[in-house]
Simulated scan of single mutants.
Amino acid sequence: MLRVRDVAVHFRVHPATVYRWIHQGFLPAFRNGQPFKPGDGATGALRIPESVLNSTETPEPTSEVA
């Protein structure tokens, strides 16, 4: 299991982006060993399975800003 910071470094994004991906459902995450559900009120650190690093693309397509 990886920390949010580790995933952010791998994908070269800000940790806030990883949290956004988790809340939007693009990345699976676990809290205290249970699948993360936004708004469940649980506390504790989020962990992301290492399998997400096997992906060659970022979880969310990047869009160009004009």
Rank of each mutant, 00 (worst) to 15 (best):
M1C: 04
P15I: 06
S63I: 14
E50V: 11
R12N: 11
V52A: 03
F30T: 07
S63V: 15
L53P: 01
V18C: 03
V9G: 06
P15G: 06
A66M: 12
L46W: 02
D6T: 08
A66T: 13
E64M: 14
F36S: 02
G33M: 08
N32D: 12
R20F: 05
Y19I: 10
V13T: 07
M1E: 07
F11E: 01
A29P: 01
S51T: 13
T56Y: 14
Q24L: 14
F30L: 08
I48K: 01
R5A: 11
R12C: 10
A66C: 15
P28C: 04
I22W: 01
P35N: 05
F11Q: 02
R31K: 08
D6M: 04
A42R: 15
T56K: 15
A66G: 14
P59H: 07
E60K: 12
F26P: 00
H10Q: 05
I22Q: 01
F26A: 11
F36L: 03
R31D: 04
G39H: 10
G25T: 04
V7Y: 00
V18E: 00
H14N: 14
P59L: 06
P61T: 09
A42H: 13
V4W: 00
F11D: 00
G39E: 09
V7K: 00
D40I: 08
P35Q: 05
E64Q: 13
A66I: 14
T58H: 10
E64N: 11
E64P: 03
A66D: 10
S55V: 07
D6S: 11
Q34C: 10
A66R: 12
P59G: 07
F26V: 01
P59M: 05
R5E: 12
G25K: 04
S63F: 15
P38Y: 05
S55Q: 15
R12K: 13
R12S: 13
R20G: 04
R47C: 03
